[in-house]
């Protein structure tokens, strides 16, 4: 909420020019001792003064909220959603949203409505990217005064996954995994165990007998027939530094997901068992982002 105490105001360059013009008008009025010229000069000066209040009113009472932000990979642009809410009965006109002194959005917000705007911010580092401090401004109505808010801190951040790069090709993990697999399993349709039902599981894998007994929904897990299971393991990348390892793992998660593989992720202290799907990927990437 932009309260009264949070707004600053200065005359713009146009305001300076107008003040010079008004002074010249005053001199002409005095020189010709012309009443109407005096009145006209005073009318315009008073209007310039009153326009300050209109400029202030245009920003006062505007609410700013941050909306959700889709996670991005480092090196991409994070698009924060900010919502401008105008609870007053007057439109807020010619608003500008800036961050770091640069104008990012320009919009009007009609009376009693909200307007959402995307604020693109480059995400350079993995982790949590805080929404930048925002500044609102407007020189409405006459362009001679310019009002802006103090830097507004919003409680919202964007999750930034590590940059998905790595020199080791995906086949590196895949091959090793195949090799290991050969020792432990031969059949692809082996029953591995039971786990809690998750939406999207195929109905034929549901443990119907348990349902009949009145238990919760359980899903039978099988070793994928014709599917490859990969272990994405921190320890595989022994000779790399932390960020490079995370980037490499991130790359593999993306590749494994795109290839619709079942994969597990192992970080020191964190073990995400073999699984697949969007939820699994998101969980893995979250771990990588915040590790």
């Amino acid at each position: 909420m932009l309260g009264r105490h949070k707004l600053y105001m200065l005359p713009t360059r146009l305001g300076m020019i107008l003040s010079v013009v008004l002074f010249a008008m005053l001199l002409a009025s005095v020189n010709y001792n012309n009443s109407l010229a005096f009145l006209f000069t005073f009318l315009l000066s008073a209007m310039a003064f009153v326009s300050m209040l209109y400029t202030h009113r245009n920003l006062a009472g505007l609410e700013l909220q941050a909306g959700p932000c889709e996670p991005v990979f480092a090196g991409e642009l994070a698009h924060f959603t900010v919502v401008l809410t105008n609870n007053s009965a007057l439109p807020k006109v010619a608003l500008r949203l800036h961050h770091r002194g640069k104008e990012v959005v320009r919009c009007d917000v009609q009376a009693g409505t909200s307007q959402s705007a995307m604020v693109p911010v480059p995400a350079s580092q993995r982790g949590r990217l805080k929404i930048p401090e925002m500044v609102f401004s407007s020189d409405f109505p006459l362009g001679i005064f310019f009002s802006w808010s103090k830097k507004l801190k919003l409680d919202q951040h964007c999750l930034v996954y590590p940059r998905p790069i790595g020199e080791l090709p995906f086949s590196f993990v895949l091959n090793r995994q195949r090799y290991q697999d050969r020792g432990t399993r031969t059949e692809g349709d082996d029953f591995l165990g039971l786990r809690a039902y998750r939406p999207g599981d195929p109905p034929r894998h549901i443990h119907w007998k348990a349902v009949a007994r009145g238990q919760v929904l359980l899903t039978k897990e099988f070793g994928g027939a014709g599917q490859d299971t990969v272990n994405l393991d921190w320890d595989l990348l022994g000779d790399m530094d932390k960020e490079a390892r995370l980037s490499q793992l991130c790359r593999w998660v993306v590749d494994a997901h795109n290839a619709d593989l079942h994969y597990s992720l192992h970080l020191p202290g964190i073990n995400l068992p073999v699984d697949h799907g969007d939820t699994h990927q998101r969980r893995c990437l979250n771990r990588l982002a915040l590790y």
């Binding site: 009443s35 005096f38 009145l39 009318l43 008073a46 209007m47 439109p91 009007d108 109505p141």
Partner: peptide, 30 residues
């Protein structure tokens, strides 16, 4: 200053309001 988003009527009304609200101060100065 505000080229889009508002109607001409709104702008005419606003500038009229500006002039009228400036009138008392103009008279005082006069």
């Amino acid at each position: 200053v505000a080229p889009s988003g508002q109607s001409n009527r709104y702008r005419l009304k606003l500038s009229g309001q500006l002039l009228i609200s400036a009138l008392p101060l103009a008279l005082l100065l006069f």
